[in-house]
């Protein structure tokens, strides 16, 4: 479990987060939603420690992440996987070398064991094994996301972070990627935190949804509760178009 306590973050005058407190649960797809610019990426980067909060703490289990030494943080990071908004695959390495990189860096596996593990991960994300020899720039956007996921899970992480895993994908592929992350989360009991503004994934996979608005946590709940809530900010966010608002009204009236 990951626990964020009273996280504040400003960039100069721009107060992006004004005290976010929330829990993120294992085996669940924890979604952070909010408008573009709401601070989702900033919150995610605070959780993984790529940014340092002005005030507040992040706990991995019982461990205070920012209270740790460099070495302690590195230990935690070995159990963290992350999928970046732009995939962040190393473009001078082949797909196989990309996925193998964490194994090369951190494990004592033999070459054969590493290759087997890479094959497992490639299979897990439904890629064909012939993509192993291509370079990331030769892969399509959806394939890059899959490769990114494969690399993120290669060390069997306990925590998985995904920044907009389905941005820039067609709706069908987006759902496939969402399902993939969801099933990996469930099967391995990973604590997964996903940034998203895609309504499909909210309604399909939101076990624990957090809405950011104006630097605050505006709403928290699961996908069933989304439909019933009276929270105006959430409604304005989800039922953004007048058409959807009308639809919801008539739905509620039966």
């Amino acid at each position: 479990m990951i626990r964020a306590v009273d996280l504040h973050k400003s960039f100069g005058e721009n107060e992006v987060l004004k005290g976010i407190t929330s829990d993120f649960y294992p085996g669940k797809t924890n979604l952070i939603i909010g408008r573009s610019g709401a601070g989702k990426t900033v919150l995610l980067k605070l959780l993984v420690g790529l940014l340092t909060p002005d005030v507040g703490k992040v706990f991995y289990g019982d461990v205070d992440f920012f209270g740790l030494s460099k070495e302690g943080r590195r230990q935690i990071r070995m159990s963290v996987g992350m999928l970046f908004q732009g995939s962040a695959l190393f473009d001078s390495m082949t797909v196989e070398e990309n996925i193998r990189f964490p194994l090369d860096m951190f494990t004592n596996m033999t070459r054969k064991e590493k290759l087997d593990r890479v094959d497992e991960c490639i299979e897990r994300v439904d890629l064909k094994s012939k993509v192993k020899q291509i370079y990331p720039s030769e892969a399509s956007g959806g394939m890059q996301k899959r490769i990114g996921i494969a690399r993120a899970i290669v060390l069997n992480p306990k925590y998985l972070f995904c920044d907009e895993p389905n941005s820039g994908l067609d709706p069908k592929t987006a759902i496939v990627i969402d399902e993939l992350i969801h099933s990996i989360t469930r099967d391995n009991q990973i604590t997964t935190v996903i940034n998203s503004h895609d309504m499909n994934s909210v309604m399909e996979f939101g076990d624990n949804i957090i809405l950011l608005y104006d630097g605050n946590l505006a709403w928290q709940g699961n996908k069933e509760e989304v439909l019933d809530t009276d929270n105006e900010i959430l409604q304005n966010f989800i039922f953004a178009s007048p058409f959807l608002q009308k639809l919801r009204k008539s739905f509620l009236q039966g």
Binding site: V80, M82, F84, G86, F90, F106, L155
Partner: peptide
């Protein structure tokens, strides 16, 4: 280039110095 393409962040997350 690696900094801008978030390669450095990606390595940091893995635990690489």
């Amino acid at each position: 280039g690696m900094r801008q393409k978030e390669h450095i962040d990606a390595m940091e997350i893995m635990g690489v110095n």
